Computed example of a mutant assay.
Amino acid sequence: MSDITEALTQAVADACGRHPSSAGASGTVEWNVPLWSALDQIGITLLSVPEDRGGSDGDLVTAAAVLEILGEHSATVPFAETAMLAGWLLAECSAPIPAGPMTAAVAGPDVTLVEDAGGWVLNGELARVPWGRHADHLVLLVGRHVVTVHRDEVDLRPGANLAGEPRDDVALHRLAVPADRVHPLPADSAVDARLFAARGVVGRLAMMAGAARRSLEMSLAYASERHQFGRPIGGFQSVQQQVAAMAAEVLLCKVAAQSAAQALDSGADWELAVAAAKVSAGSAAGTVARIAHQVHGAIGFTDEHDLRRSTTRIWSWRDEFGSVGEWARELGTLAAAAGADGLWPLLTEGGARAVAG
């Protein structure tokens, strides 16, 4: 980690410490406005957006480092949605990037965008849009167009993931969109639904890595405090073995997120790295959550205990932007396409390019 990235992540950690996120009634998540303002003051809410478009010109490796800190603190802000997805989409077509929190989504086949009388008409529904109710703007990828929609222009049906984070259904009822908010992508742009999903995967993997680290820290602390048969449970070999296995999986989560971010930063041959990272980290993070709850026993499942805030996020995030199974099939397809003679070069040369990037 460079000195600049280390200083940046420390500033983010300090901001999270000053403005901790908390859960509301019935496990719902409260939008952390003070933390978002602090991140905005640091100047990173558009971290991965080019400087000439109003961003900080950071790469995805740096964004992943920031997201790892936010994941560790269970931060209730749409940083990945704003910095890595919505801002990126708008920058790709040289469109104005509005201030404030944003979210982004890919329009499915049921969403239509039709030119009409000098403007456009957007119609259809979007399922489980992250932070929809709190984002000032929703940025949509509709085919080869990027569309900016104001929150008050759509109908929202509130929903949530297992951790209580907003995942809202958005209804677009023949919404009239001015021409200056519909932007065609350049002909040579690599932006598509797969690349959007890959960037989303990197964001979620980085946050999972942070949540996994926090789960390990809490498990180590609890194992030293909880006594059975006259000594801390951390003194028993079986618990030590479980915690050691947990620590290895935490490191795997971090390396997987970094590897996927490096591959996307390289601009080419990212498919293998992202698919492998999703599959390996998804399995590793699940193991971390399982062992953490085994160490804590029943207390770790209660609403009052902080462990639940990390583990429910792990379980939720690993299924977003494609499930582990879907990315495993992608990985298998890549391996089968390479064939017997091409598999080793695919693994070694692709990995080398990702690291070099």
Rank of each mutant, 00 (worst) to 15 (best):
L185D: 13
G203D: 02
D188S: 11
M218Q: 12
L185V: 13
A197Y: 00
A197D: 15
A198Y: 00
M207D: 00
A211Q: 08
R204Y: 12
E217A: 14
L195H: 10
S219I: 06
A209I: 07
D192H: 09
H183T: 07
H183I: 04
E217P: 10
H183F: 15
V182C: 15
L205G: 09
G200M: 01
A206T: 01
S219R: 03
A190H: 12
R213S: 14
S219E: 03
M208Q: 08
M218T: 04
S215D: 13
S189D: 09
A193L: 02
L195A: 10
M208A: 02
L195E: 12
L185Y: 12
A212V: 02
S219N: 04
A187T: 11
G200V: 00
R194A: 14
D188H: 10
F196H: 05
H183Q: 07
S189F: 06
G203T: 06
L185G: 14
S189Q: 10
V202I: 13
V191S: 09
D192I: 09
A193T: 11
G203F: 05
A211P: 10
P186L: 14
A211V: 06
R194H: 10
V201C: 00
G200Y: 00
V202C: 04
A197R: 09
G200E: 01
L185R: 14
L185M: 12
A193W: 06
